[in-house]
Nucleic acid binder design. Structure first.
Lengths: 228, 228
DNA sequence: ACATTGTGTAGTATTATGTCTACATTTGTT
DNA sequence: AACAAATGTAGACATAATACTACACAATGT
């Protein structure tokens, strides 16, 4: 059952490949390590169970790849990409998340991730994604690839996720809103005024064509089955 | 690194232990199988990627244990317990979910689950949970155990939904709230003052033990079952 | 290079909502 | 029957949220 695929091509890396798993769920880390060993052979894997911890690890060690879960404790949505890159500009970042890819992938790719892999992906797809990113290719599922291609408006019909039209900041606010945070709380968390949060809220509602939280909840739920 | 613990005690089961993993994420299934093999030795594992599929499998095969993720496609919150038991009354059910245990565990235990294991649990805890449930013990984390102990008033088999404690008027207001109506609108519709609506809202939140609309939404979803 | 749209951010005035308190009616309980 | 708890309802007052408006700066289109 060993599916050792061999070293990834163009192997510029002479020392052992070093990978950081940023993932709070032990059960996921276990299987990920297994898969990494299957496709890469002996490999140097470090783990973080919070985003803060991952920053520390990046600061003290050079990594080839970071596999990043989005629902990590201390997570800061798309800012995480920037913060990781601020420490190691060249590090490859593969998002590995349970959040619906068609909803979130475009945003994270835009923010600079090298790939977005959903946890719904089968075994083979996971391997493909890891190898692709290690070879400096961008990884997205075919679904998302089509989605990204489509929305360059050729057909009047686009049944893409409405979330695509949200700006990064709006996205961030929406996530917090979806967690049940109130305006004031969000303002504090993002260190902006309540007024600004209100503005985002208004714009989000407009873009999503909803008029209240519940409708928004339903609309997003529609596209994003699960995440917990 | 093999942590084979041996057969679980009181092994009434002569044939090979049969386990059903109801889990949409391949990555989680992989590690779970690994762990099961570590603690139980050779074991007969089946997998379902949707709740519907799991019902089919239960109907055609006898299982010792079902490990059930709550965010499974076609999932129906706590009704799933009843439906599984309707097919195999004696089957042990261990919830294995990423949802916050202190919020959800009590409800699922009341609904009849044999244990609630969070995906945040470390390796060792996962093993403990599986073995406990296979030995017909109820498994909960120590956190939740304390939580359950606290409200001794509810300790007595009260396995109904908190929605039952709402008065008719409160129920009415809640329904409107769930439709996204705002306070003012509800007041108009029910021909009472805004102030009264506010009072109901407060009482509803108290009874449901939630602090905002989103939590309320989730809680109600939990008890009033399926739709998607 | 210039015009336009999108994005991040707030101030202020206005409006909505929540909190605390209160009280008359039911309803439930010994 | 007698008393306690739950229910339906509000007023006064305090706090929170929104609508407008505005503006700088980035991104994009022509």
């Amino acid at each position: 059952m060993s599916t050792f695929v061999g070293w990834f091509s163009h192997s510029q890396i002479s020392t052992m490949t070093k990978i950081l798993l940023v993932e709070a769920h032990a059960i996921v880390r276990i299987a990920t390590k297994l898969i990494l060993n299957e496709i890469l052979g002996p490999v140097n894997i470090h783990e973080s169970q919070s985003f803060g911890a991952s920053l520390d690890q990046l600061a003290s060690d050079q990594f080839d790849l970071v596999m990043l879960d989005l629902t990590i404790p201390e997570g800061e949505s798309y800012h995480m990409i920037q913060k990781l890159r601020a420490i190691q500009p060249g590090v490859r970042i593969l998002i590995f998340s349970a959040k619906d890819e068609s909803l979130y992938a475009p945003h994270y790719l835009k923010a600079g991730a090298n790939g977005y892999l959903t946890k719904l992906a089968p075994d083979a797809e996971i391997k493909k994604a890891i190898l692709a990113v290690l070879n400096d290719e961008r990884y997205v599922s075919t679904t998302v690839r089509q989605q990204l291609g489509h929305n360059t408006s050729t057909t009047g019909l686009n049944h893409d996720s409405p979330l695509q039209y949200l700006s990064p900041r709006e996205m961030e606010v929406m996530d917090l809103l979806l967690k049940g945070k109130w305006t004031k709380e969000i303002a504090g968390e993002l260190k902006i005024t309540i007024s600004s949060v209100s503005t985002y809220k208004t714009r989000i509602f407009e873009k999503l064509e909803v008029s209240n939280l519940i409708e928004m909840f339903n609309k997003v739920q529609l596209y994003s089955g699960s995440q917990s």
